[in-house]
């Protein structure tokens, strides 16, 4: 809920251009719900993004598109452990689907 508030504030202040959301949740289901909330709107209709479809591009920190843009040593230190923990294949698949859904809306 607090994160929804922060993202809504950022969008209100800066607009949706040049804004990308990077999700870090390691559980694929949690990551998916979080990603859908900041792109398609709050499915629980409880937070600041209820009925607000920002259609922001969304990536997961463990996707190769993000990993390749971060210095290897920094990535290893900050995300290396979670990369071993997470089911990165499922996460990548779910996030690609969400990005495709945004372009179709």
């Amino acid at each position: 809920m607090e994160k929804q508030t922060i993202i809504k504030k950022l969008v209100d202040e800066r607009g949706v251009e040049d804004l990308v959301v990077v999700i870090g949740a390691v559980d694929p289901e949690v990551a998916q719900v979080t990603a859908e909330t900041v792109t398609l709107g709050d499915p629980s209709f409880a937070g600041p993004l209820a009925g607000v479809s920002l259609r922001l591009p969304v990536y997961h920190i463990l996707e190769s598109e993000v990993k390749n843009d971060i210095p290897q040593d920094v990535y290893e230190e900050q995300a290396g452990f979670m990369e071993i923990v997470a089911d990165t294949e499922t996460i990548s698949r779910k996030f690609k689907e969400i990005r495709e859904k945004i372009t179709q809306v």
Binding site: D27, V30, T34, P43, S44, F81, I84
Partner: peptide
């Protein structure tokens, strides 16, 4: 939308073993 908490924890312990 709160995920499978035990599964994530077990994977973390396994990841410690990998490291």
């Amino acid at each position: 939308g709160s995920g499978n908490v035990p599964l994530t924890n077990y994977r973390m312990i396994g990841a410690l073993g990998v490291l």
